[in-house]
Design a protein around this nucleic acid. Structure first.
Length: 256
DNA sequence: ATGACTCGCAACGCGAGA
């Protein structure tokens, strides 16, 4: 089973690229972020025509997450349990072939300090709580998405330039580390020690052409999921396409 | 450097993203 995460930066603007990538990469499960639309306007029909089932947790203009799957989707949970007061659509969870998947759009958190950074850290606390609860189920679990976290200085082209940013601050990294310490592994880093591999390149300043990127899209796997991990990589190709998202897909392959 | 991106919006410039 191949599962991927991709922040598409608007599903409507990105639909041709998303359809092209689904046909080319043939993922079984895809976690999408920043769909930027309400559920009713999600282009489900076009995606279903390629053989996918769709579960959406959308919102007008901002945020929004979804899960696509060639296999049936069950037990869909919209919103992060324990964080019911959150009005932003940043989390959806569902079971596919006995694996629990979550599509996560973690808050950016800039500027720091400020309300948005406080919101980011609080959101991470809720995520850690949910991640811990999922471990107790002993179900293979994949928490995938745009974490807006640069885990280490190997995951950024210029750590000095990013100093103080919400994506790299120690408080942010500490929360991410706590998720790892619970027992969730960064699938890409587990299988790839090469530094300076990225999943996001800014639209500005020729960042893509210069490979000035950051690695902030992660698939975090419980031990039961790690036991089934065969491969993990970043597919840089869609970032080079016309009308690209600023993020590119990151994927894993699990034993069936 | 007369520059520097892309999205949605009941827009016609702005906020947000990272």
């Amino acid at each position: 089973m191949k599962a991927a995460t991709w922040n598409v930066n608007s599903i409507k603007a990105r639909l041709p690229n998303v359809l092209a990538w689904l046909q080319k990469a043939q993922p079984d499960v895809v976690m999408l972020q920043e769909i930027k639309t309400i559920d009713d306007n999600f282009p489900a029909m076009e995606i279903e025509e390629l053989g996918y089932n769709v579960a959406v947790h959308g919102q007008k203009s901002y945020n929004g997450v979804a899960i696509l799957s060639k296999l049936p989707i069950s037990d869909v949970q919209r919103g992060l349990p324990g964080n019911e007061a959150d009005e932003q659509a940043r989390y959806i969870e569902a079971t596919i072939a006995g694996v629990r998947f979550a599509s996560i759009y973690l808050p950016n958190g800039n500027p720091t300090p400020g309300d948005k950074f406080t919101y980011k850290l609080a959101w991470m606390e809720h995520l850690i709580n949910r991640a811990e609860a999922l471990l107790a189920t002993e179900t293979p679990t994949v928490l995938a998405g745009d974490y807006n976290v640069i885990p280490s200085d190997d995951d950024v082209h210029d750590a000095v330039a990013w100093a103080g940013d919400a994506l790299i601050r120690q408080e942010t990294r500490d929360c991410f580390r706590r998720l790892q310490n619970l027992g969730y592994s960064d699938a890409f880093r587990l299988l790839n020690s090469t530094p300076h591999r990225y999943s996001f390149w800014d639209y500005q300043g020729g960042a893509w052409q210069k490979d000035n990127g950051i690695r902030i899209d992660h698939l975090m796997l419980s031990a039961q999921a790690v036991d089934r991990l065969l491969a993990a990589d970043i597919d840089q190709e869609p970032r080079g396409w016309e009308k690209a998202s600023d993020h590119t897909p990151v994927w894993i392959e699990l034993t069936d």
